[in-house]
Structure formats: structure tokens, C-alpha cells
């Protein structure tokens, strides 16, 4: 395995981690806001307080890892993406800030404010929407070079069916991932009402997920035939993903093995996400930047990999401790400790 491939695999893995745990976080916020509007607040807010508050900073760090890592492994990306991503990136940052401040200001001071909870929920949909535009941009056709510096064509981006499909998929995925996870978590807490509510949401968003995902592949066949062809060549990975989706839905439909359903869901997204990533190879930004051209020097690459391994050796036990104390601790999950 060459260093470029190793680097992009590490980064893609961080991004995958962020997609999964970030989605849980974002979706939960949205469901919380939605339940406040529909008067079902008591069902969800406790679960969200209990699960999300101790881990949101960890979620955020996955995102930071990704963009710090990409600057290190692929410094040219910093140049291209940095230049064109100013507006969507800044909007994403402001939304992330609103979200983070909700945790800072609301959960630690234990007095709920409805408007704030609503904004917090809304950011749960808007953040994936704004950040996912970078995936659309990476497909090419929205960036042109003037005097050697890249410029983003906003008109083309906002009128492209592809970019809107990606935005819709990111939102639907957030809602689906989150609903499946919270079904399991609510079930762990023994809260039947919350479990049923989340199960309903999971089932509602299951079909739209597959439809929008299929839609993107269809859009790509016009927008970027080269990428489309590589996706078709990897059909088996998407097929595995689809099977895992069927199994997840089947378990949830039959109200059993919610825990297995979560793992199947992770598997489903893993296959789709990596298949997408592999088919995107070798381009980071079609057709301007590949991972070979944009790669850092050997010394930096090796030292980053070494630090990554050491860091991970440090983090895995810590993460295990967090999961043991908060996620898989029956007494905590059932709310037997006070804050």
C-alpha cells in the first residue's frame, strides 16, 4: 500500500466515523426539536441529555481530525478547498458554533429554552447540508481556474440537481442513522414509548434513504460519467450495502435485535461510503487534483502515520472507558445517577 492510499484511507475512516456519530448527534437534535413542537418533549429530551452531553465534544473532534489530517497528508487540498470553500465552510462553522453553544449553555445550566432547542434542531439538518456541498464540489464542474487560482461557480452549484440530491441524501441519512441508533438506545433505557417513536421515525426514513442514494448515482451518470463507470464496476459493494439495509429494516420492523440493527446499519454505510470513496480514486477534486499530485512529502507522511498510530493507541482505551461508563452502563443508561 502506498503512503497516499494509506493517508487517504486514514482520513476517509475519520470521515466515516464523523458521518456515523455526527449523524446520531444531528438527528437527535432534530427529533428533540420536532418533539417539542409536537408536544412529545418528555419522551426524548432525557435520552438526548444523557447520551449526547458527555460525548458531543468527542463527536466534534472527529471533524477536526479530518480537516487537520487532510492539510497534513494533502496540503494542496488546503489550497484548493480553502479557497473555494470559504462561504459554505464558514456557514457550516457558524452552525456548528450554534450547536456547540447549545450544549455549553443549555445542558450545563439545566433550564430549557424552546427557541434555542429549535435552532439547535435546525442546525442538525443545516450542518450536514452545508458540509456535504464539498462532496458535490469534488465531483467537478463547479470550479474553474482564473489566473491559476480556483473560483467556485455558485450559480452552477445551486442549480445542479446533483448537488441538491447530495444535500437531500445527507439530511435523510442523518435522520435515518439517528433514528435507528436512538431506537436501540431508548430500548436500552427501557422506555417503551420512546422506543416506539424512534422506531417509527427509522421506518419512515428508510425508503427515502435508498431512493435518494439511487438518485445520486443516476445524476452522476450525466454529471461525471467517469466516476459513474467506476461506481458501476464496484456494484458488488453497493449490493452488500443494500442487503444490509434490508436486514436492518427487517429487524426494526419486527421489533427485535435493535442492537444488531445498529451494527448492520453501520455496515451498510461502511460499504456504501468506502465504495464511493474507492470509486472516487484517484481524484480529490475532479479533474484538478488527484491524491498523487496533492500528496505531502515522505517525511511528513511517515511521521503523521506514526503519530496517528500512537494517538490511536492512547485513544482507544479512553473511548472504551467512555462507552463503558455512558453507553453500555445499564445503570447510567437507565438514569440512576444524578449529574
Amino acid at each position: 500500500m502506498s503512503l497516499e492510499i494509506l493517508g487517504i484511507t486514514v482520513l476517509w475512516t475519520f470521515l466515516f466515523g464523523y458521518v456515523i456519530i455526527g449523524s446520531i448527534d444531528y438527528g437527535a437534535g432534530f427529533f428533540n426539536a420536532y418533539s417539542i413542537i409536537t408536544g412529545k418533549q418528555h419522551i426524548l429530551s432525557r435520552i438526548i441529555q444523557q447520551y449526547l452531553s458527555p460525548v458531543w465534544e468527542i463527536t466534534n473532534v472527529f471533524f477536526v481530525f479530518f480537516f487537520v489530517g487532510i492539510v497534513g497528508f494533502f496540503p494542496q487540498t488546503a489550497y484548493y478547498i480553502g479557497t473555494i470553500f470559504l462561504v459554505p465552510g464558514s456557514i457550516g462553522l457558524i452552525l456548528l458554533a450554534i450547536r456547540g453553544s447549545y450544549y455549553a449553555f443549555e445542558t450545563y445550566s439545566s433550564r430549557g429554552h424552546k427557541g434555542y432547542a429549535f435552532m439547535y434542531g435546525l442546525t442538525g439538518l443545516l450542518i450536514p447540508a452545508s458540509l456535504s456541498t464539498v462532496l458535490a464540489i469534488s465531483e467537478g464542474g463547479f470550479v474553474y481556474l482564473t489566473n491559476g487560482s480556483p473560483v467556485l461557480d455558485y450559480a452552477a452549484l445551486f442549480t445542479s440537481p446533483l448537488s441538491w440530491s447530495i444535500v437531500v441524501l445527507s439530511i435523510v441519512a442523518v435522520l435515518y442513522i439517528s433514528a435507528v441508533f436512538l431506537t436501540w438506545y431508548a430500548n436500552q433505557t427501557g422506555d417503551v414509548e420512546a422506543t416506539n417513536l424512534m422506531r417509527k421515525y427509522a421506518l419512515i426514513w428508510a425508503l427515502p434513504l435508498i431512493i435518494t442514494a439511487g438518485g445520486i448515482v443516476y445524476e452522476l451518470s450525466f454529471h461525471n460519467p467517469e466516476h459513474y463507470e467506476r461506481i458501476v464496476n464496484l456494484w458488488w459493494m453497493f449490493a452488500v450495502s443494500f442487503l444490509l439495509w434490508i436486514l436492518t429494516v427487517w429487524f426494526i420492523w419486527n421489533r427485535k435485535n435493535y442492537g444488531t440493527a445498529v451494527w448492520l446499519l453501520i455496515g451498510q454505510f461502511m460499504f456504501a461510503f468506502y465504495a464511493y470513496g474507492i470509486s472516487h480514486y484517484p481524484y480529490i477534486l475532479y479533474p484538478i487534483l488527484t491524491i498523487h499530485e496533492g500528496f505531502t512529502n515522505r517525511a511528513m507522511a511517515i511521521s503523521l502515520v506514526v503519530v496517528f498510530i500512537l494517538g490511536f493507541a492512547l485513544l482507544l482505551p479512553s473511548l472504551y472507558l467512555v462507552f463503558k461508563l455512558f453507553l453500555f452502563n445499564k445503570e447510567y443508561v437507565q438514569g440512576k445517577y444524578k449529574k
Binding site: 473532534v61 477536526v64 481530525f65 487537520v68 489530517g69 492539510v71 497534513g72 497528508f73 496540503p75 505531502t296 511528513m300 511521521s303 503523521l304 503519530v307 496517528f308 494517538g311
Partner: peptide, 8 residues
């Protein structure tokens, strides 16, 4: 980039 990565 190394200390940036370590900082994270």
C-alpha cells in the same frame, strides 16, 4: 502539520 495533528 505534525503538531497540529498532535494537538487534535
Amino acid at each position: 502539520a505534525l503538531p497540529l495533528f498532535m494537538e487534535t
